[in-house]
Amino acid sequence: MDIVTDTLSALWKVLAVGILLGAGLPALYALGLRSLNAGRTVNADGTVSGSASAGGRAVGFVILAVVIAIALFGIVVIVWGKQIFGA
């Protein structure tokens, strides 16, 4: 039954990494968007007032850049990971 437990332990890792990256990255992206829109408020009638603050925009773009960097790094690890880090 070793192969079954091996498979289950691999699935467990997929779930853990999945939550970390698969749910974490969209959440980080959402933080970036929120920061980009900091300073703007939505009124009760749905209109938007105020303008985005410069600081918020700067932080927002940094966060989005981090998200993109992590995603690209992920691709590199997946495609070339075995050559870079060994098996």
Binding site: A10, K13, V14, V17, G18, G22, A23, P26, I78, G81
Partner: peptide, 14 residues
């Protein structure tokens, strides 16, 4: 994002 993470991680683990 969930799909990408699950597919890429699982193929990495064989």
């Amino acid at each position: 994002a969930a799909s990408a993470a699950a597919i890429l991680t699982s193929s990495h683990l064989g």
